[in-house]
């Protein structure tokens, strides 16, 4: 999957699509297989980027931690919806300390040069999944036909080594079933030739779905041809398969007199590099060059692709891989 961060408006439609499809029941209520967090920010679970896991430069699995529901994920809470009708103050029914989107839209920088952008996150369905590598029971597998990483719940014994080892913290513990569960890339939909619910419902049309070895797919063009889509934290060493088109700085920075500084970057590029690695420089350069081309009235295949005039063009899922036939999308 490729996600164009320039188009994400943080509406959480993907989050809700995923939640209503998969995680609003059976002990999954506190899970967000898909979440959209504000960057810079602590994210979900809180400060997940400091929780370890992944592989070191030598390809060896690293230690990580299992987040706590109380201090890292947050305990789901509700509001006093009934009381508000009796002119009471609208407030949570508990005293929540942390939760998904706790620091939504906070961002960083000082006004008027503050900045933030949204980062939607799902399981990266990594090529070298560290969750899979950490499982002492070998209960996690990566499907040959489409690369989707799944937990075999019949083998999972709830030891949570996978949760410690996933550097993206995208595998969750179901305390009710005592099993680890994660984004399944809507594999029942994929098998019917449909994109995952998060991508299908994305109002900003930021999500492209296809196979990286399918040269006809837009994900191939964005990742391999134009190289504008790059993985999040490539240094985690898991070969993540969700790629992001990095956010181009929107408005310029303002000087002390309140005048825009020409050529300045509102979002510091070093910050983007800390998320996406050094490849972000070339990606941004290409994006700016194509934007300039378009401004000059020229045609840009890349920008047309990113604009996504037809939603269905963003998905090429029905491409049969060897020995696996799927219906082709109309």
């Amino acid at each position: 999957m490729v996600m164009d961060l320039n188009k994400c408006i943080g509406c959480q439609t993907c989050t809700v699509a995923c939640k209503t499809q998969w995680t609003n029941r059976n002990g999954r209520e506190g899970m967000y297989w898909n979440n959209v967090e504000t960057k810079p920010g602590d994210g979900f679970p809180r400060k997940w980027e400091g929780m370890g896991g992944g592989f070191d430069e030598g390809g060896n699995l690293k230690d990580g931690v299992v987040p706590s529901r109380y201090s890292d994920y947050g305990v789901p809470w509700d509001y006093n919806g009934d009381e508000i009708l009796r002119a009471q103050e609208f407030k949570p029914q508990t005293d929540p300390k942390v939760g998904p989107n706790w620091d939504e839209d906070v961002g960083a920088g000082d006004f008027p040069n503050s900045y933030f952008f949204y980062l939607p996150r799902i399981c990266n369905h990594c090529s070298n999944p560290s969750c899979l590598a950490a499982c002492p029971r070998e209960a996690i597998f990566k499907r040959d036909q489409d690369g989707i990483v799944l937990v075999d719940l019949n083998r999972c014994e709830g030891n949570r080594m996978c949760i410690a080892a996933c550097p993206y913290k995208k595998i969750y513990f179901n305390t009710k079933l005592s099993k680890s569960e994660k984004c399944i890339f809507c594999f029942p939909r994929i098998e019917k030739g449909l994109p995952p619910a998060c991508a299908d419902q994305c109002v900003g049309r930021i999500r492209f779905v296809g196979y990286l070895d399918d040269v006809e797919s837009q994900v191939y063009k964005l990742v391999h041809q134009y190289k504008v889509a790059i993985p999040l934290h490539p240094e985690y060493g898991t070969q993540a398969n969700v790629y992001y088109v990095p956010p181009m700085s929107g408005p310029r920075r303002f000087d002390k007199a309140g005048k825009p500084i020409e050529g300045s970057e509102r979002i510091p590029t070093p910050y983007l590099e800390s998320l996406f690695g050094p490849a972000v420089h070339d990606a941004l350069k290409t994006l700016h060059a194509e934007l300039d081309k378009r401004k000059a009235g020229e045609h840009s295949e890349l920008l047309d692709t990113l604009i996504a005039y037809k939603h269905s063009d963003m998905f090429r899922i029905g491409q049969p891989r060897p020995g696996f036939k799927l219906p082709v999308l109309k």
Partner: peptide, 23 residues
């Protein structure tokens, strides 16, 4: 061994799925 996927060879050619082979 506990799980053969705990160690891979970062410099070896990746397979068609982008995975580095296990060490």
């Amino acid at each position: 061994e506990p799980n053969p996927n705990q160690h891979y060879m970062p410099s070896a050619p990746k397979d068609p799925n982008g995975a580095a082979p296990n060490a």
